[in-house]
Design a protein around this nucleic acid. Structure first.
Length: 417
RNA sequence: GGAGGGGUGCCCGAGUGGUUAAAGGGGACGGGCUGUAAACCCGUUGGCUUAGCCUACGUUGGUUCGAAUCCAACCCCCUCCA
């Protein structure tokens, strides 16, 4: 490809956001003429998003920073259908109330990454329930359904996966693609939106929308997908010991979020800095060139910048400080995750495995027992030898707390009350 | 509607009457080595009040001293035929 002329596409390519584009040249030209509205759709299946959605989120942020209008499309309507892409199983259907609550939670996340408002480059959030909820079945089929070829749809990746793996694909889900295609048409009509972006698994759905709009309105739209992000060793992004890497404080603390980025593999540091921070490219180039143990400095910067975007500068600084104390000085930091335990209960003695479970360091007592047996559990930094060891008030340290650890990185405090 | 194949733990996938909480692989977690990295080596991987008990191989019943394994009915998926 020749070097793009528009700020947006140039930055998107250089920072590694582009996997495929329907017509890079034409899109580049369009983007260099003035602000273009572009959207990415998000499902409302949970009240938060996780790190897997971060690439699209950062792409919208980049779009805004380079002078264009990001549109966040909430799938309030399509979530009632369920995207079969990448899913073996049919999704559980959510109620309207759940979906509304989820959209509210997700909006709070976007407010950290984008500037919302009414200006030409201000972000907007739209819910496709606005037009999908009131669709009339027969008129819709007659006007739009006739443009879709089932023959072609059967060939799409999202459908093929289910068919090949012999998993059920309901007609309901089969329609997801049709509705997403229709979304693009609606957004081009209502908001003059010309570009849909999304993960590489969305390619088929995006192209379907472009084709539909072309057939209905004779209007040329564009699509751009981001690469599926895996770590250098091939693992999917966004998972951690205690589950997914969520983007809201309630589900994953800013400290754990910081830790997630701090533990990035060496080989991924440059790539992640480009994708998940706003740092200029020449500085990133300098950071990723650091060799040996020095690359840890780059990881701290990555963690700091990424956490700043998601949780704010104060939380990022606090997380960095907690990490410094915990790892570099071995001191107990105040804001490690903590649980409160009744001091009377402590006086009587509580099995260590139970406290480990309650502190969220293990999912069950059995898992905690195994952790102890395997030598991975520590009480105030001393390995717990006995599987049935009791923790009592005698274990409260000078700071008035008890420190529990699972492995070297996961710590929690027990505060007597 | 007819014929055949199939539904196993987080995922894939073995297992056709007992020694099966279920081979093997993946993933995950822990230990070792390191740099809070990767690679590599080792261990663990249903729950509980853990030398014991409980729950589990689509669902519900049945045969048997004993069932993931045999039988029946039902549910779901796949393939071919109508």
């Amino acid at each position: 490809m020749t070097s793009p002329g528009s700020d947006f596409l140039k930055a998107a390519v250089e920072r590694g956001f582009v996997h495929q584009c329907t017509d890079e040249k034409a899109l580049d030209e369009l983007a260099s003429r003035g602000p273009i509205p572009a959207y990415i759709g998000f499902d409302a299946t949970a009240d938060s998003l996780h790190a897997g959605s971060l690439v699209p989120i950062m792409l919208l942020r980049l779009l805004q920073r380079t002078g264009h209008k990001p549109i966040v499309l909430m799938g309030g309507g399509t979530t009632k259908v369920g995207d079969p892409s990448g899913k073996d199983e049919q999704r559980q259907l959510l109620t309207d109330d759940q979906i509304d609550a989820n959209i509210r939670g997700i909006r709070r996340i976007f407010e950290n990454f984008l500037v919302f408002g009414d200006g030409p480059t201000d972000a907007a959030m739209v819910d496709n329930a606005e037009w999908l909820d009131d669709l009339q079945y027969i008129p819709f089929l007659r006007e739009y359904g006739r443009h879709f070829s089932v023959n072609r749809m059967l060939g799409f990746e999202s459908v093929k996966l289910r068919l090949e793996r012999e998993h059920p694909l309901s007609f309901l889900e089969f329609n997801y693609m049709v509705l997403q295609a229709y979304d693009f048409l609606e957004l081009s009509r209502r908001r003059n939106c010309v570009l849909q972006m999304g993960g590489s698994d969305q390619w088929g759905n995006i192209v379907a929308g472009i084709e539909l709009t072309h057939k209905c309105d004779h209007r040329q739209l564009y699509g751009l997908t981001t690469p599926l992000l895996t770590t250098s060793s091939g693992a999917k992004m966004g998972k951690t010991a205690s589950g997914a890497v969520w983007l809201n404080e309630g589900r994953l603390s800013a400290y754990d979020y910081w830790q997630y980025w701090r533990n990035t593999e060496d080989a991924d540091v440059g790539r992640f800095l480009r994708l998940f921070t706003d740092l200029p490219l020449d500085e990133i180039g300098r950071l990723e060139a650091l060799g040996g143990a020095e690359i840890n400095e780059a990881k701290k910067i990555l963690a700091g910048e990424a956490t700043k975007l998601c949780h704010g500068a104060a939380a990022a600084a606090a997380a960095a400080e907690t990490a410094r104390k915990t790892f570099e000085q071995g001191v107990i930091a105040e804001d490690l995750p903590a649980i409160a335990v009744d001091s009377g209960e402590l006086k009587a003695g509580v099995p260590a495995y139970e406290l480990i479970r309650r502190a969220g360091l293990a999912a069950s007592n059995g898992e905690a027992r195994r952790l102890i047996k395997g030598g991975g559990a520590r009480l105030n930094d001393v390995a717990i030898g006995e599987e049935t060891a009791q923790v009592t008030s005698a274990d409260i340290n000078a700071d008035g707390v008890i420190k529990l650890s699972a492995g070297k990185k996961r710590h929690a405090l027990v505060r007597p009350t």
